[in-house]
Simulated scan of single mutants.
Amino acid sequence: MEHTQTLDGSTAPDEDGSTGVDSGRLVGSDRVLAVLKELARYPGGVGLEELTRTVGSPKPTVHRALSALRRAGLADQDGRGHYLLGDEFLRMAFAHHEARPEHVRVRPLLEELAARFGETAHYAVLDGREVVYRAKIDPPDGAVRLTSTVGGRNPAHATAVGKLLLAHQLATVEEVAAWIGDTPLERRTPQTLCAADELHRALRAVRAQGHALDDQENETGVNCLALPVYATSPTTPSGAVSISALAYRTPLPTLVEALDEIRAVLGSLGEPHP
């Protein structure tokens, strides 16, 4: 059985009599949130048995978490008995996403870049060792498109947006090495920069040039150019805008040659204001 936290912050016994917080099991709100996050992985719905296995909690406790989520409108159950995210959760998520100040300001620029270059435009922010895509606009035409999604993540060191944002945080090779720490960087392609010294040189070039490049470092056949966006601070980039292109269709030199055009689209949003 599960243990719960009482109103005064103490730990009440689980139904099996255990009281230790260090039992390693998800309890209370943590379990409910774990179930909610797991539901997001199944847009077509998921059965209770499979959800119980993936969350790693007993079936009755997962069922109670689902019941709480359903009462709040954050989860729903379809005609097959499968559980999925509820309409209220989607309403809140989309409303929050659309209302973000940087999203409102950046989206029209992404639309213009995607239309001009016939490639995918992203807006991404840095989150630790990864970048998170906050907005994405696919080109209006073109049979082949990228599989990236809003909310999706990629390793920062392997992407143009990541290297651009890291360049504003990691000034020395020692800082780069400390950021890498004891966990080796993932080599996504043969082009990926994984050593501290080579990543430091790349970040130094980003600071000198004012833009960052991804020469098929995250995905073979896809290259990228990124520029900073100052949407929430006059001196520190809130994120970065990128044009991600299929290398055979828009080679990297073509994007570099269009730097002035891209900067013109970003306008004052792409310039710091000391």
Rank of each mutant, 00 (worst) to 15 (best):
R107H: 14
H63S: 14
Y230R: 00
A114D: 00
A99R: 09
E111Y: 04
G210W: 01
V35W: 01
D215N: 13
Q169K: 09
D127Q: 13
H3D: 05
A160E: 07
V125T: 14
I137Q: 06
I180C: 01
L225E: 05
G118S: 00
V173A: 06
H157L: 05
P13K: 03
E174W: 07
V55T: 01
S244V: 08
T172A: 04
L26F: 08
T235S: 10
G270I: 02
N223P: 05
D127W: 14
W179Q: 01
L164V: 01
R134A: 10
D76Q: 15
D78P: 02
D127E: 15
A178R: 11
A68T: 13
T149V: 15
L269I: 01
D22W: 07
P234D: 06
A264S: 12
K136S: 04
I137K: 07
L26P: 06
P101K: 09
D30L: 13
A34Q: 08
V144C: 03
S242Q: 02
E119C: 11
L227P: 09
Y133S: 01
D214Y: 10
G24S: 03
H63Q: 15
G9L: 03
G152K: 00
G142R: 00
S233L: 06
G162K: 12
L113V: 12
G79K: 10
L164E: 02
S233I: 05
V62H: 11
L51E: 04
V265C: 01
D182M: 05
